[in-house]
Design a protein around this nucleic acid. Sequence first.
DNA 1: ATGAAAGCGCTAACAT
DNA 2: ATGTTAGCGCTTTCAT
Lengths: 357, 357
Amino acid sequence: MARGSDENPPVTGRRGPAPTGRPTMRDVASAASVSVKTVSRVVHNYPFISDDVRGRVQAEIRRLGFRPNGHAVGLRRADRAAGGIGVLTADVADPFYAGMLSAIEQVSTARSFTTLVASSGEDPARERALLSTFVERRLDGLIVVSADRAHDHLRPDLDVGTRIVFADRPPRRLPVDYVLAAHAEGARQAVAHLLAQGHTSIAHVGHSPAVHTARERLRGFRAALTDAGLTPRAVRTDATDAEAAYRATAELLSLDDAPTALFTDNPPLVAGVARAIAESRAPRTALVAFDDSELARVLGVTVVAQDPRELGKRAAELLFARLDGARSRPRRVVLPTTLVPRGSGEGHGVALRSTRR
Amino acid sequence: MARGSDENPPVTGRRGPAPTGRPTMRDVASAASVSVKTVSRVVHNYPFISDDVRGRVQAEIRRLGFRPNGHAVGLRRADRAAGGIGVLTADVADPFYAGMLSAIEQVSTARSFTTLVASSGEDPARERALLSTFVERRLDGLIVVSADRAHDHLRPDLDVGTRIVFADRPPRRLPVDYVLAAHAEGARQAVAHLLAQGHTSIAHVGHSPAVHTARERLRGFRAALTDAGLTPRAVRTDATDAEAAYRATAELLSLDDAPTALFTDNPPLVAGVARAIAESRAPRTALVAFDDSELARVLGVTVVAQDPRELGKRAAELLFARLDGARSRPRRVVLPTTLVPRGSGEGHGVALRSTRR
DNA sequence: ATGAAAGCGCTAACAT
DNA sequence: ATGTTAGCGCTTTCAT
């Protein structure tokens, strides 16, 4: 029963090399003079294999550079094949989503799942197309930061077993788990902080309320003022970027009854608002911003912070709990925000030279 | 030849529902009373199909929520199936790599390829494991920011057709395309800028030269000084983080013959170095840093900048050129760096309040 | 314009 | 301890 190493034809499979040029299990099997199944067993560390056979097979695997074909595995093992999850955000380059993604990837990799990413750029059509490719790739689960207003199109996929978790923004008409920060409550926190400093004239410089998060923050802002018996007057929702925020703030501060405090709802706006304050006749105007950023840290801007990594971690955990078989009805996780006083909200102004932009 | 919609059993395939619970092409075929191949043709917009058949098939596809199985497609189509590329970086949360990733994803999505990501955390073993899963998933190409010192293990995969491009750091003993910034040249640029301001005592506060980029930057720093007839004396390579950089800088600046200018090689270090300068007896000590950052912009730190998006874009373009069949020998692309004067390198100091950390 | 059969590379269900 | 037989869901010949 001696098995000479020249008992078999060199390396090539039967009809020339495989289409991909890659050796298959069959190539390994015939090179090692065993059956395909045995190779499969060696690959999967099945214990009851003779050392002789295992050795020969492993040698051939190495020599031929064999790598299991994930497609074949995924096709055959409908159960819990080589797992993968997809993450869809607005923009992976945004530090907030980058942090979230990093935390997700960490959880995912720890479970030996691969992580796919895609950015919608806030375009609903693009989002749907990208989610389609995720589904076609038969990913086990999806984490979605949606720019869409309806999610019914995901219903069929959900019904047949694709696990889906929403993050940062809630699903619409889709019974899935989701996790988001307490945006409205965070805004209240910010206003409460300013009220406690004695401010009664507080303005809002923010994004258009088309986005869920901006809407919620504005809602919290208004509610906090109303609850305090004040009337929310100065509200700007046209600050789409730092430059617009600069103009809006400059206008607010040049009014006769200029506000003594500002609340702004987005990191990119902070640069503009801070500059406008520094250049105004009231450089000590108080400022509290939503979401932390490098800029806010450096400028000493008081913020209401959410934790992007925590958001990602919790979303991933919800997802994997479902993949592990959790059957409860959809869960809603709301993460608390943290007020971080740095000076700008306590009347110390911002640490910005007014001459430099 | 009337085809009643009740001519076939409801929906289920032959032996109960498919393992995944997902409808297959066969389910659609039998529901629409056509062959599997016809469904395939409809899915792929094959033109010569009667409107009647196309309509029936599309209706069933929608009704059943059919989605092609990417694994089956990938298995059968060895050519260029639903394409995908993998990106391995040290850390997707790092703004530099996040920007690079975003640019890659943009190119990739434009070509209808999906993008997988993974972070090695600078751990070579982890990097190899992650690259293995990429290969097993039969991705068409890989973009790698490697933390490894040898890449021979990728040789077999390269030989059988996996396209690989290195970014930010060069490959070792692997004939692949790569793109990186002119780190050494960039450091020379920084030193030249300081020399031009009349400085002759320039120190370096940097990372350990274990990483390629840090080593190159240090090399450029030394070469620039030597070429100018100066002797590089004050070189600290123990600044692993902002705190260490703070201490190193503070020590340098308290020397009797303290340097009048500093070059630092990493964004995270800037905060520490800037603070040490601001708190020193020479708050106008000149500073030039490598790599741009939000912090540098705000503090007015002069930097030698590379463009992470350009890095990603070029890497992706090199990769797709190979996927399109380019056969030239390995290309090396070196991206120029840009000196951005902001004041700290021109004797205006940094815009940091020494009282705030 | 449509269909039947074969098979991609692997694993699951039985063998022995 | 090892091998045989099917077949995952699709695309690819080759028919008609």
